[in-house]
Write a protein that binds this DNA or RNA. Sequence first.
DNA 1: GCGACAG
DNA 2: ATCTTGTCGC
Length: 232
Amino acid sequence: MKVRSLHRWDLSPAEAKKVQEQLRSRVNSETPLDWDRIRLVAAADVSFSRKSPVLFGAVVLVHFPELTLHSVYYRQAEARFPYVPGFLSFREAPVLLEIFDALPVVPDVLLCDGQGVAHPRFFGLASHLGLLLDLPTVGCAKSLLVGEFEPPGVEKGSFTPIHFQGREVGAALRTRRGVQPVYVSVGHKITLPDALELVLKCSPRYRIPEPLRLAHQYVNRYRETRETVPVE
DNA sequence: GCGACAG
DNA sequence: ATCTTGTCGC
């Protein structure tokens, strides 16, 4: 699928910050999701070993709403940017974009392991990928990066808003009764209510949405054994 | 200066 | 995130 090229990737943290501040105005958080057209949900994840500078990426495609596996695509690449809170996309996006560039099909929506606009400069990994792929994307993180929230009810489906600098940037969503919530935020071309509904519909039994669980599972096996499991 | 800090 | 050993609950 087509991948936009809006900037270079060999940047300093200061330059990366300027890119984020420049691109954040282009994020679309008002377009409703066209539910009748959602057939393929994608999820992306990156894995690496403590010693090696190599990053392994995987993009999983699952049928919606069945959540059964459609296919998996992989790639490995040298990390060119360190992990710095607030700059995750400059480390992980490059290898993931190489995978998307080779994707033979276009997913209808992408689930990302990280924040969307619930970010210091309102431009986390999910927003960055969404803009470069021109796809609806959702940020679904396991921990908070910025903002404050009240604990949501213990029931599955309950959620509370995440506020940051006077704005509502996302929500803490309980995807399973009595477990820690996940932190959902708009990536691009989707609304927060639709993002929450999608994450919930993708989480039939575990805290982490099925597409992201599969992506994590497959990318780790790829990193450990270099085995690729296609499917189709 | 101090504490926080996606993956 | 990765690394690593043990423990709690369905």
